[in-house]
């Protein structure tokens, strides 16, 4: 099972990706908590792609088994200028409290809500690949 979405940058288009997660996750037997966690993660990945990607993004999702554990694999790809994933700060509540800007939570939430996250980025292409196992908790 595989879904591929080519999404334009329009308001709330991230919900189209979340809806696809709901459908595919449900079809492979993910519980509601796992679906909701993956939905928030894909929303954050799409928002990052829209903000930094400079145009249309491609979302792919598929059912895959890894080390005997079934799960949902999601990829969000954009054609932006790229960034160094190892230099991206892991946000924390103490770092943000009292600051006038509270943005920059996307990657932190994705890493916390998903079971595995890999980011490859260079100028012209950023790919966020994330996995949620069917049996994992939110």
């Amino acid at each position: 099972m595989e879904v591929v979405l080519h999404l334009p940058v329009v308001p709330n288009v991230e919900l189209v990706a979340a809806k696809a997660v709901e459908a595919v996750g449900g079809a492979i037997g993910m519980h509601q908590g796992g679906i909701e966690a993956a939905s928030v993660a894909i929303v954050e990945a799409c928002l990052n792609a829209m903000e930094h990607g400079g145009g249309q993004m491609v979302v792919r999702m598929s059912a895959e088994t890894f080390e005997g554990r079934p799960g949902l694999v999601i990829e969000v790809e954009d054609q932006g200028k790229g960034f160094d994933p190892s230099a991206a700060p892991r946000n924390s509540a103490t770092r943000v409290a009292g600051c006038t800007t509270k943005r920059g939570w996307g990657l932190t939430l994705i890493r916390e809500l998903m079971d595995d996250v890999q980011i490859r980025s260079h100028p012209g292409r950023t790919l966020v690949r994330m996995r949620k196992f069917v049996e994992s908790s939110p």
């Binding site: 908590g33 509540a93 943000v96 409290a97």
Partner: peptide, 16 residues
Amino acid sequence: LTPTISKTFEIMGLVQ
């Protein structure tokens, strides 16, 4: 709150 929203609030510091 759903479990995911609760966890998100926890990560972002609201529940502190």
